[in-house]
Simulated scan of single mutants.
Amino acid sequence: MRKLSDAPTLGGGAESSTENRTTGKTLASRLVLIIGSESVASFARRSGVGESLLRKYLNGAQPNASNLVLLADAGGCSIDWLAAGRPPRMRADISDNAKGLEDASVVGNEFLVLKQYRAADSDQKTAVRVLLEAIEHPSGGAWYRAGQAITNIANIFPRKKD
Protein backbone atom coordinates (compact mmCIF):
# COMPACT_ATOMS: atom_id res chain seq x y z
CA MET A 1 0.00 0.00 0.00
CA ARG A 2 1.38 3.42 -0.98
CA LYS A 3 2.07 5.90 1.78
CA LEU A 4 1.48 9.62 1.51
CA SER A 5 5.21 10.14 1.03
CA ASP A 6 4.85 8.24 -2.27
CA ALA A 7 2.23 10.70 -3.53
CA PRO A 8 3.15 12.91 -6.48
CA THR A 9 4.67 16.30 -5.78
CA LEU A 10 2.12 18.82 -4.59
CA GLY A 11 1.75 22.27 -6.01
CA GLY A 12 4.34 22.03 -8.79
CA GLY A 13 5.76 25.46 -9.61
CA ALA A 14 8.80 27.02 -8.01
CA GLU A 15 8.15 25.85 -4.47
CA SER A 16 9.39 22.47 -3.38
CA SER A 17 6.85 19.87 -2.27
CA THR A 18 8.48 19.83 1.18
CA GLU A 19 7.93 23.55 1.57
CA ASN A 20 4.31 23.26 0.42
CA ARG A 21 3.68 20.37 2.79
CA THR A 22 4.94 22.26 5.81
CA THR A 23 3.41 25.66 5.04
CA GLY A 24 -0.09 24.50 4.09
CA LYS A 25 -0.47 26.97 1.22
CA THR A 26 -2.75 24.70 -0.82
CA LEU A 27 -5.67 22.47 0.01
CA ALA A 28 -3.54 19.48 -1.01
CA SER A 29 -0.76 20.50 1.37
CA ARG A 30 -3.26 21.03 4.19
CA LEU A 31 -4.59 17.53 3.52
CA VAL A 32 -1.04 16.20 3.82
CA LEU A 33 -0.77 17.94 7.20
CA ILE A 34 -3.97 16.45 8.61
CA ILE A 35 -3.28 12.97 7.23
CA GLY A 36 0.15 13.02 8.85
CA SER A 37 1.76 9.59 9.12
CA GLU A 38 -1.51 7.73 8.53
CA SER A 39 -1.79 5.98 5.18
CA VAL A 40 -3.94 7.60 2.52
CA ALA A 41 -6.09 4.46 2.36
CA SER A 42 -6.68 4.47 6.11
CA PHE A 43 -7.54 8.18 6.20
CA ALA A 44 -9.86 7.73 3.22
CA ARG A 45 -11.71 4.89 4.97
CA ARG A 46 -11.93 6.87 8.20
CA SER A 47 -13.23 9.97 6.42
CA GLY A 48 -15.73 8.20 4.18
CA VAL A 49 -14.15 9.62 1.02
CA GLY A 50 -12.95 7.13 -1.58
CA GLU A 51 -9.20 6.59 -1.72
CA SER A 52 -8.95 7.41 -5.43
CA LEU A 53 -10.89 10.61 -4.85
CA LEU A 54 -8.67 11.56 -1.91
CA ARG A 55 -5.61 10.99 -4.09
CA LYS A 56 -7.14 13.35 -6.69
CA TYR A 57 -7.48 15.99 -3.96
CA LEU A 58 -3.86 15.40 -2.98
CA ASN A 59 -2.94 16.08 -6.61
CA GLY A 60 -4.80 19.39 -6.74
CA ALA A 61 -8.46 18.60 -7.45
CA GLN A 62 -11.02 20.48 -5.35
CA PRO A 63 -13.53 18.58 -3.22
CA ASN A 64 -17.23 19.35 -3.15
CA ALA A 65 -18.70 20.77 0.06
CA SER A 66 -19.85 17.38 1.37
CA ASN A 67 -16.43 15.80 0.97
CA LEU A 68 -14.74 18.86 2.43
CA VAL A 69 -16.85 18.42 5.56
CA LEU A 70 -16.00 14.70 5.74
CA LEU A 71 -12.27 15.40 5.39
CA ALA A 72 -12.30 18.17 8.00
CA ASP A 73 -14.24 15.92 10.41
CA ALA A 74 -11.75 13.08 9.97
CA GLY A 75 -8.80 15.45 10.36
CA GLY A 76 -10.25 17.25 13.38
CA CYS A 77 -9.65 20.59 11.69
CA SER A 78 -11.94 23.48 10.87
CA ILE A 79 -13.57 23.47 7.45
CA ASP A 80 -12.44 27.07 6.93
CA TRP A 81 -8.81 26.14 7.54
CA LEU A 82 -8.95 23.09 5.30
CA ALA A 83 -10.69 24.94 2.45
CA ALA A 84 -8.85 28.26 2.58
CA GLY A 85 -6.04 28.06 5.13
CA ARG A 86 -7.72 30.56 7.49
CA PRO A 87 -7.05 30.03 11.19
CA PRO A 88 -7.84 28.56 13.57
CA ARG A 89 -6.65 25.22 12.28
CA MET A 90 -8.03 22.87 14.91
CA ARG A 91 -11.64 22.63 16.05
CA ALA A 92 -10.49 22.68 19.67
CA ASP A 93 -9.23 26.23 19.07
CA ILE A 94 -12.68 27.23 17.84
CA SER A 95 -14.41 25.78 20.89
CA ASP A 96 -11.90 27.51 23.20
CA ASN A 97 -12.74 30.83 21.52
CA ALA A 98 -16.46 30.11 21.82
CA LYS A 99 -16.44 29.50 25.58
CA GLY A 100 -18.58 32.13 27.20
CA LEU A 101 -20.47 32.77 23.99
CA GLU A 102 -23.12 30.16 24.79
CA ASP A 103 -25.03 32.80 26.72
CA ALA A 104 -27.29 34.51 24.18
CA SER A 105 -27.16 37.79 26.11
CA VAL A 106 -23.37 37.93 25.68
CA VAL A 107 -23.67 37.35 21.95
CA GLY A 108 -26.49 39.88 21.70
CA ASN A 109 -24.48 42.49 23.59
CA GLU A 110 -21.45 41.94 21.37
CA PHE A 111 -23.56 42.41 18.25
CA LEU A 112 -25.09 45.56 19.72
CA VAL A 113 -21.64 47.01 20.45
CA LEU A 114 -20.38 46.08 17.00
CA LYS A 115 -23.47 47.54 15.32
CA GLN A 116 -23.09 50.81 17.24
CA TYR A 117 -19.35 50.94 16.52
CA ARG A 118 -19.94 50.49 12.80
CA ALA A 119 -22.48 53.33 12.85
CA ALA A 120 -20.13 55.66 14.78
CA ASP A 121 -18.20 58.47 13.15
CA SER A 122 -14.39 58.47 13.06
CA ASP A 123 -14.04 60.53 16.29
CA GLN A 124 -16.27 58.12 18.17
CA LYS A 125 -14.38 55.11 16.80
CA THR A 126 -11.11 56.69 17.93
CA ALA A 127 -12.57 57.19 21.41
CA VAL A 128 -13.58 53.53 21.61
CA ARG A 129 -10.09 52.41 20.58
CA VAL A 130 -8.52 54.70 23.23
CA LEU A 131 -10.78 53.21 25.88
CA LEU A 132 -9.93 49.65 24.84
CA GLU A 133 -6.22 50.52 24.87
CA ALA A 134 -6.54 51.80 28.45
CA ILE A 135 -8.28 48.61 29.50
CA GLU A 136 -5.60 46.47 27.87
CA HIS A 137 -2.61 48.56 29.06
CA PRO A 138 -3.68 50.50 32.16
CA SER A 139 -1.59 53.48 33.23
CA GLY A 140 -2.34 56.94 34.55
CA GLY A 141 -2.03 58.58 31.15
CA ALA A 142 -4.04 55.88 29.43
CA TRP A 143 -6.91 56.26 31.90
CA TYR A 144 -6.81 60.05 31.58
CA ARG A 145 -7.18 59.67 27.81
CA ALA A 146 -9.89 57.08 28.45
CA GLY A 147 -11.79 59.58 30.59
CA GLN A 148 -11.70 62.01 27.72
CA ALA A 149 -12.77 59.22 25.40
CA ILE A 150 -15.79 58.37 27.55
CA THR A 151 -17.10 61.86 26.96
CA ASN A 152 -16.65 61.40 23.22
CA ILE A 153 -18.40 58.03 23.03
CA ALA A 154 -21.46 59.00 25.04
CA ASN A 155 -23.33 59.78 21.84
CA ILE A 156 -22.75 56.38 20.22
CA PHE A 157 -25.57 54.71 22.09
CA PRO A 158 -29.04 56.09 21.57
CA ARG A 159 -30.69 57.60 24.61
CA LYS A 160 -33.93 56.09 25.81
CA LYS A 161 -36.82 58.49 26.02
CA ASP A 162 -38.79 58.37 29.25
Rank of each mutant, 00 (worst) to 15 (best):
G48T: 07
S47E: 02
V113S: 08
G48L: 03
A72T: 02
G147E: 12
C77T: 08
I135W: 10
F43S: 02
N59R: 15
G36I: 08
R91P: 04
A92Q: 14
K25R: 15
I153M: 12
H137M: 04
A83S: 15
T126W: 00
G24M: 07
K160G: 13
I79N: 10
R129N: 06
L131F: 13
V130K: 05
L82E: 01
S37H: 12
G147L: 11
W81E: 04
I150R: 14
K25A: 12
T151K: 14
A127R: 03
A154W: 09
D103V: 05
F157L: 12
A14H: 10
R86V: 13
G147C: 10
L114Y: 09
N97M: 15
C77V: 15
A7Q: 12
A7E: 14
Q116H: 13
P138I: 04
A83W: 03
V107K: 10
L132M: 10
E15Q: 11
Q124V: 03
D162Q: 14
A41R: 11
L82H: 05
K115L: 11
A65N: 03
V113H: 07
W143E: 00
L33W: 07
L31A: 07
E38S: 10
A28Q: 02
A41V: 08
R45A: 15
K3W: 09
V113E: 07
L70E: 01
F43Q: 01
S5Q: 14
V130Q: 06
K25E: 07
G36K: 10
L4M: 08
R159D: 06
G24S: 02
E102Q: 10
R55S: 13
L101F: 08
A83H: 06
G50R: 09
K25D: 07
E110M: 14
V106Y: 00
V128F: 05
A149N: 01
P63I: 08
D96S: 07
A98H: 01
L132G: 04
N64R: 15
R45Q: 15
N20C: 14
I135Y: 13
S66L: 15
K161W: 05
Q62I: 15
K56L: 12
P158H: 13
D123A: 10
A83I: 07
P138Y: 05
Q148F: 02
